[in-house]
Design a protein around this nucleic acid. Structure first.
Lengths: 215, 215
DNA sequence: TTTTATTAAGGATTATTTTCTTTAATGGAA
DNA sequence: TTCCATTAAAGAAAATAATCCTTAATAAAA
């Protein structure tokens, strides 16, 4: 009858985590409008979601709302950014400077959300040695040499057939979190987090929903 | 006691849809290895998922497996690509040629998955009139004029504060599916599909899981 | 030919997530 | 001050998704 459920102590559901950046974006717009407080009811109405879902999601952070008033906008922004890890700047290596990797190098938005790509790796002699958006492209063999313990995040944008191998290399090299943009399911030891973000998976969902509406 | 459940007739669960491109990628690698048949058991083992989940997911398509053999690789690839809408090429407009929009213009992978960006819109005089990766950047006001009924997909990569407005413009202009890269929740009429793909939401999940492991 | 092992597929169960309901708190109006 | 409307938060119920279990089919082995 212990209050802690063995292993899932403090684990935040993924759907909730995914919604939090939406709340954050909403709150930043609210701040622009000089709103000091905002209630879950209002957030829910504006965003078209269930009010209790908002309070449940926010309850995973340390914020506490005021009855009949809501949450303090500034505090909630701070708490959320902190909770989501958008405050501290994580260094990241990019693996695969092809079309998609290139694309990510062009997106400066990542910096704002706590991620800074400090180097990219590839095997193509046509790109190795170049610099894109200030980020040097090195040969993969260089990765092994630079044991920078401050770089824990790796972005995986290599072709599908190399994904598993490169991921294993990354893990061996000390990478603790792999942001996987390939459609391949990576299999690794427990101590390395793999976050799948296949753009094409989202595209597939959109196409399907569109065809549902049409018919 | 009718066999059809009123409205959700034939609707495919989003988790299943999101997994399908993974199966597709796996199958393409299997094809390279000249495998003719592949069973759900093998797919599951290789990908580290549950075998019945594989058969359930695939059962939403028209494919039928052979007992004791599995699925024919070539057929399954065809069926999946067709089912996911990766075969037909959809034209798309890009709204917001900033950092992230620019990034997407650099990703040629989209073409392979059935999406071709034919024009981009922005309001910044510094980019309007230019051409990026062969795609012309026009002023948003041009969008209203070009009623190309063949373009049903719109990619939303404008700053958060303009997201809702631009989305409404898109819907009015005949866009039927909005691929929303902003963290803003778009509110529109039922006949327009909105697919949220906030990179930062995924980043948030990864950071959280990483901190879970550490402690 | 008969047996055996493996498989797809459908239904049942369990886990997870969302939505609904209730309770207690409290700022503002009367 | 007293009452009322609105709110956060916690718990219950419903919906959804993942996993488990059973069955029938059938290639391959005996």
């Amino acid at each position: 009858m212990s209050s802690e459920n063995k292993k899932k102590e403090g684990i935040v559901p993924e759907p909730s985590l995914r919604r939090m950046p939406c709340y954050l974006a909403y709150l930043k717009l609210a701040k622009r409008r000089n709103q000091e407080y905002v209630s879950s009811t209002h957030i829910a109405r504006d965003m078209g979601v269930d009010p209790t879902q908002v309070t449940k999601d926010l309850s995973y952070t340390s914020i506490v709302g005021k009855t009949r008033v809501g949450y303090e906008v500034n505090t909630l922004i701070d708490v959320l950014e902190d909770f989501l890890g958008f405050r501290k700047l994580d260094k990241a290596y990019l693996f695969g400077a092809g079309s998609l990797g290139n694309a990510l190098l062009h997106d400066h938005g990542l910096d704002q959300y706590g991620l800074k790509i400090v180097a990219a790796f590839d095997i193509d002699p046509k790109v190795v040695g170049r610099t894109i958006e200030g980020v040097p492209i090195l040969h993969v063999s260089e990765f092994e040499k630079m044991k920078d313990k401050n770089v824990e995040v790796g972005i995986l944008t290599v072709p599908a057939e190399f994904a598993q191998d490169v991921a294993q290399q990354m893990a061996r090299g000390g990478i603790k979190g792999i942001w996987n943009f390939t459609p391949i399911r990576i299999r690794l030891a427990e101590d390395c987090v793999v976050q799948d973000t296949s753009l094409y998976a989202h595209l597939a969902v959109m196409f399907n929903r569109m065809s549902n509406i049409k018919k």
